[in-house]
Design a binder for these strands. Structure first.
Lengths: 338, 338
DNA sequence: TTGTAAGCGTTATCAC
DNA sequence: GTGATAACGCTTACAA
């Protein structure tokens, strides 16, 4: 049985008030009292019960990070940065995966989960804008959205300029002389914001150069996995005309796509240039190394945590949208020979 | 202000006891009462306060997973499996990274952290055996160790046979005719269990084949990152005689090592065969795909959560050691031409 | 400066 | 089957 505040008070012959003061670092405690209390704490190996404290103060000191899948490098790298940023603000992070499961997302948002032991949510959602709107007022919990959902003034929001990012990637492919540019990562059935915006950027860049996307050159990918990228690119390689470049909506798709190009007996970038989005570490060392649009994940994490903690302090602060920078990173997969 | 049990009781004109019964699914509640209560709950949009419940029951429903770095693929894939396994047992997972920081590990183990809102710890530690022993009795919190620390009967423990895993990897390199086999991943200054055991397996396999490891053929790597692997392999490539195979203590090291081999103008596996340990997904799609020793991570996760929840239920159950299977997976990096 | 006591919102122990 | 009511361990008015 762990020692309680009362036990300490008894042993030290003081009131619980005094013990509490010492524990929470209250200023006005006489040195003699403090010493007595500290000795008792030491002797009983007392440690404050965080649950009781939480019940009283209403703060758990914990944030939830909700992502589709933690094993996806982009999300695990984001999680690393979020955990670090949260630590700097005195918070810890619980991670939940929705596993691309809409219902799970809704549950979390509705807040009817039985174990919501956290003060706020960092949410990287799949849900469409319509669904987000539909949840209006559903949850009272402070929340910051990560990703590219359109800002509607209700939620804090750390995003990137997704259309422009896609546009930059495709413009680069055009600049190196490619004309038959395919895209992998559209969503066939759902109206997710990210793929829609990246598709828009892709089309805008093509239009700007008076190019077009032949039928079958935009390929859906359900889960943005390496396997999805592989299968999509394999299909593209058997088309005629064959694409001479592929814009993948994520680096992970690109890793699979590059492998499919090689397995089709072709070379990257000579026969087919490949570019992704995210700038995951895997792409630095792959062969060829992967050109990409780099997102400033540490900034995104820091900004998101900053906004969220501010809202936890004061739920009335106005929602803000922050746009994180992105920049084109040219590596071997769109450059000269390997 | 969220509604409380008392509010519901008042509105439904029943006692809090009855409301609590309904909420927690107690059997013996008359249908009339139940309906009244449910209506009131609906009307007030009542949701139980998990903190209060926790204070009362002593259970948070949360486990902590402590890893060196969540962005390392092996750990993010492990985290995915742990989160899934925990969900199956009704728990959620808080993730903490120690960032290779010993002090942080010790803090967690000592349990003097102020926000320990969890029922047990899954701990994938760096600490050496001596340090673990030194912490005897330091924490009363249920804990399961992940990884290859020697079992001393005090902690539950899900491990792999590390020596044998290394041995299998190196034996495979020997079987395909390699004789100058280097190793990357020793720890120069620390007595961590994992690198020591893998080194032992490496040496055992060599000895068995009457081979030896020339001076400079075992290269340390501080953080098991791709960069570490790259640098270590780059150094190896400039030695003479040059190794014709490299056993990397992790797949991530191997990814960096392969890249270094190519950058030295050599081929994998023709000039230098490369094998890792972990079987991360990245290795399925890399070029060449990576031979490795596959660890059964889903099993490890499930087993660890099972042991931990059992210990949470009954702190007195005897500690057990479970050894997870491993198996050699031969891919392109140790097979015929690319 | 320190003590007393009233909660925080549940669950659980009594009675009835 | 249901109603009072006492904890759970802490923080914090309010008093002294």
């Amino acid at each position: 049985m762990p020692a309680t505040l009362r036990d300490v008070a008894e042993l030290a012959q003081v009131s619980v008030r005094t013990v509490s003061n010492v524990v929470s670092g209250y200023e006005h405690v006489s040195e003699r009292m403090r010493q007595k209390v500290l000795r008792a704490i030491e002797e009983l190996d007392y440690r404050a019960n965080p649950v009781a404290r939480t019940l009283r103060t209403g703060r758990t000191g914990m944030l939830a990070l909700v992502v589709p899948e933690i094993a996806v490098p982009y999300f695990s790298e984001l999680a690393r940065d979020v955990i670090d940023a949260a630590a700097a603000f005195g918070y810890r992070v619980m991670i939940d995966q929705t596993g691309n499961d809409h219902e799970r997302e809704r549950q979390l948002l509705r807040g009817d989960d039985r174990t919501m032991l956290f003060d706020g949510i960092l949410f990287s959602p799949l849900v469409t804008k319509a669904e987000l709107l539909e949840m209006r007022g559903a949850t009272t919990m402070p929340m910051v959205l990560l990703g590219e959902h359109e800002f509607d003034g209700r939620y804090d929001h750390v995003a990137i300029d997704n259309v422009q990012a896609a546009r930059d990637a495709v413009a680069h492919l055009i600049a190196i002389g490619r004309t038959r540019i395919a895209a992998i990562g559209t969503q066939p059935d759902e109206e997710y914001a990210t793929p829609l915006q990246r598709t828009a950027g892709y089309e805008a860049a093509l239009a700007e150069a008076d190019l077009e996307s032949p039928p079958g050159f935009t390929v859906p990918a359900a889960r943005y996995s390496r396997t999805d990228g592989y299968e999509a690119a394999a299909a593209l390689m058997s088309r005629s005309p064959r694409p001479d470049a592929i814009f993948c909506f994520s680096d992970l798709l690109a890793m699979g796509a590059m492998r499919a190009v090689f397995d089709a007996g072709l070379r990257v970038p000579d026969d087919v240039a490949v570019i992704g989005v995210d700038d995951i570490e895997e792409g630095h060392f792959s062969r060829p190394s992967l050109s990409t649009v780099s997102l400033d994940t540490p900034f995104i994490a820091r900004e998101a945590v900053r906004r969220l903690t501010a809202r936890i302090e004061d739920p009335e602060v106005a929602a803000e949208e922050v746009i994180a920078e992105h920049r084109l990173v040219v590596r071997e997969s769109t450059a000269g020979g390997e």
